[in-house]
Design a protein around this nucleic acid. Structure first.
Length: 268
DNA sequence: ATGGTAGTAGAACTA
């Protein structure tokens, strides 16, 4: 039985609802995890997305900022909406996806961006980002509640040298500083996660999921970063059949600055 | 070195 899981920082689900709808029409992932929905739960476009066949929807949203949502064509069971750093931010949602013969625990994360200055002593946003990562230590790839686990989302860190357009030029830029990349990799490995995007796409290859809105020509300058991630239990690796990073989505009309990533599994 | 754009708002924040 195939199972596909997509992740996409949508940067306002209401403004970009037509983009989400056409993405679901064209790619039809079984599950879609959205971040930066910027939408209170009572204003979430449930009806429009259910019409597309995504009957199971779980949201954790707030007004104006942040917010995550997980939609599925298969039954979902809500596990947790965990509040990190006691700030009242809506940045996490976990569900169990019925994958046929496998039950998958699926975490959807939106990690704080961290501001501009990569010094936790003078920048509270960077401190918050590091604290958030510290709290993620408890999120393990092995979990008794399911057969396997997947963690997706905008983690706002590009860990590998090939995850940014220029390793040297970004060493002091938030998202690629050593404290961030080392903390994220330790967190991933220490909690038993496999980097499924890099399992499918060789770590030597440049790979980006985000291009700034501020570039004159995002495609020509190609100053991208891999900020969005799909991790999984090591037991899932033999079942991974594909990984699509929809670079061309950055060129859609009124695009998000992030593009969708889709992981495909087969459990037959 | 700076400023560049986008979204939610309806000023100033976040990214």
């Amino acid at each position: 039985m195939p199972l596909s899981i997509a992740t996409w920082n949508i940067n306002s689900v209401r403004l970009r609802l037509p983009l989400v709808e056409s993405f679901l029409d064209d790619y039809a992932p079984d599950v879609l995890c959205l971040q930066e929905t910027k939408c209170p739960d009572d204003k979430f476009p449930f009806d429009a997305l259910r019409k597309k066949g995504y009957e199971a929807i779980e949201v954790n949203g707030q007004k104006g900022y942040h917010g995550v949502a997980t939609l599925s064509r298969r039954p979902l069971q809500l596990v947790e909406k965990r509040e990190y750093c006691a700030k009242g931010d809506c940045r996490h949602l976990s569900v169990i996806v019925d994958g046929g013969n496998k039950r998958i625990l699926l975490h959807n994360f939106y990690v704080p961006a961290g501001g501009d200055e990569p010094d936790p002593d003078i920048n509270p946003k960077f401190r918050h980002k590091l604290d958030f990562l510290e709290e993620m230590q408890g999120v393990h790839a092995e979990d008794d509640r399911a057969d396997a686990a997947v963690l997706v989302g905008d983690l706002n860190i590009a860990p590998l040298e090939t995850d940014v357009w220029s390793h040297k030029q970004l060493l002091k830029v938030v998202s690629h500083t050593p404290v961030e990349t080392e903390t994220l990799e330790k967190l991933r490995v220490g909690n038993g996660w496999a980097d499924l995007m890099r399992t499918a796409i060789p770590p030597e290859d440049k790979l980006y999921t985000w291009w700034s809105y501020r570039a004159r020509d995002w495609n020509a300058s190609d100053r991208g970063r891999r900020l969005d991630h799909i991790w999984g239990s090591p037991s899932l690796v033999p079942h991974l059949t594909g990984m699509d990073v929809l670079r061309h989505a950055r060129g859609w009309e009124r695009p998000s600055d992030h593009v969708p990533v889709i992981a495909r599994f087969d459990f037959s």
